[in-house]
Structures are given as structure tokens and as C-alpha cells.
Design a protein around this nucleic acid. Structure first.
Length: 216
DNA sequence: TGCCAGGCCGGGT
DNA sequence: ACCCGGCATGGC
């Protein structure tokens, strides 16, 4: 089976086994973007606690959040871990929203992908995965999200050499899949769901994983 | 109890 | 261009 066919077939297999994912967890584009920063190298259950604190304080809008002293914001997001650096990263993102669209986050949807992605990457604390997650899940731009689960999957199934870079990994999927937001959304969601349940770093539960047949 | 979780940055070589 | 330490909580 060619590499391209494998990538397509793995999608069909995961989707058949798990069904629709209804991703990303989040009520609004802004909430999704904040969640994307909070979940950097962090379990989602911890992120939920942080977002719950923000919601209780009625801070899930850009301007309201930006008006909170950064130290207070850090305390609110404490359960998400790395809370000092993440408070700074969120603040950088909020400053970007103020400067770019006067906090009117929905205006970002009118940008082209090629124009908005570099702008997000220029925000200190937003790297390629966080940028793509925001673009795909908050604003429905057709860009594919690569995360640790995806890299692990690719390497485990011999689809690329270790050390392959983010953009190359992304091309691996985007050159094969139809340019379709719903597909990119669902594919990444399925990979994470599979990863959480079967393909953790050290635990080997792959004998029951739906993708096990692809290990040949 | 130690290991892990939906990264990214900054400094050193 | 690579490599590495730092950042931190909560669940199992």
C-alpha cells in the first residue's frame, strides 16, 4: 500500500471504529483559541478546570480578559500548569487581537490563510501547532494540525523518518487529503482520540487499537 | 510513586 | 542548524 493510500485508509478505519468526533471542545472561537494555548503539553482535563475558572469570572471575551492583571490571570489558569508562562502567552495573544482587529476576533475569518498564519506565529507563545489548531478549529481555515500524537503515529507506522519537521509532517497529510476543513478537523480529532486511548508514550495497548492492522 | 499530558521559547554550541 | 533545560499542575 502506498504512503498516500495508507494515510487515507487510516482515516477511514479510525472513523469507522470511533465515529464522528464533534471537535474542538469550546463554545466560541475565542474560547477555542485560549484552550489551544492552555493545552500546550498539558492534559485537557486540567485545561477544563482553567477554562471553568475563566468562565465563572466571566472573562471569556478578549477585552475582559485583557483587562485582568496578568498575575490574577495566572492564578485563574493555575490548574492548567505552566501558569505563569501561559498567562504571558495569552496576554501576547490578547495584545495581538487588540492591535490587529481591535478585539473583534471574528474579523480574522476574513483574512486569507497565508496572511493570518504568519501573524499568529509571530505572537510569542504561539507555535505551529497552536496556530493551526486556532486556525482550523476556531476559524475553519483548511490547515492540518500536527501534534505529538500525530508524529508518534507517523513514526510508528513508518511513514516518515524521525526528526521530520512540522511543515513536512503537515505536507504529508495535506498533499494527500482533499483540501477540506471537515476532513482536517475530523482526522486530527480521531488521531488524538486514538492516541489517548491506545498509543500513549510507553503503554503498549496497540493490540486492540483500530490501527493495529496497519502495523503489518 | 514516578511518569505523563493535544508545546514553545531562549540560550549555548 | 541542532540540542537542551525550563516551565507546573493533576490523574493514574
Amino acid at each position: 500500500m502506498s504512503q498516500a493510500d495508507t494515510i487515507l485508509a487510516m482515516y477511514e478505519t479510525m472513523h469507522a471504529a470511533l465515529g464522528d468526533s464533534a471537535w474542538w471542545p469550546g463554545e466560541t472561537p475565542f474560547e477555542i483559541a485560549i484552550g489551544a494555548i492552555l493545552t500546550q503539553n498539558t492534559n485537557w482535563t486540567n485545561v477544563e478546570k482553567a477554562i471553568s475558572n475563566l468562565r465563572k469570572s466571566d472573562l471569556l471575551t478578549p477585552e475582559a480578559m485583557h483587562n485582568v492583571p496578568i498575575h490574577d490571570l495566572a492564578e485563574l489558569i493555575r490548574p492548567a500548569g505552566y501558569y505563569n508562562i501561559k498567562a504571558r502567552r495569552i496576554f501576547n495573544f490578547l495584545s495581538f487581537l487588540r492591535d490587529e482587529v481591535s478585539y473583534n476576533i471574528s474579523l480574522l475569518k476574513e483574512y486569507s490563510l497565508d496572511r493570518i498564519r504568519p501573524k499568529l506565529l509571530a505572537v510569542n507563545g504561539i507555535g505551529p501547532e497552536t496556530a493551526d489548531a486556532i486556525l482550523l478549529y476556531a476559524f475553519e481555515f483548511p490547515t492540518f494540525v500536527i501534534d505529538a500524537y500525530t508524529a508518534r503515529l507517523v513514526h510508528r507506522h513508518g511513514l516518515a523518518f524521525e526528526g521530520i519537521e512540522y511543515d513536512e509532517l503537515q505536507s504529508l497529510f495535506m498533499d494527500v487529503l482533499p483540501q477540506d476543513v471537515a476532513i482536517y478537523n475530523e482526522y486530527h480529532a480521531l488521531i488524538v482520540r486514538i492516541g489517548k486511548d491506545w498509543c500513549k508514550k510507553k503503554q503498549g495497548l496497540c493490540d486492540t487499537c483500530p490501527l493495529q492492522p496497519f502495523l503489518e
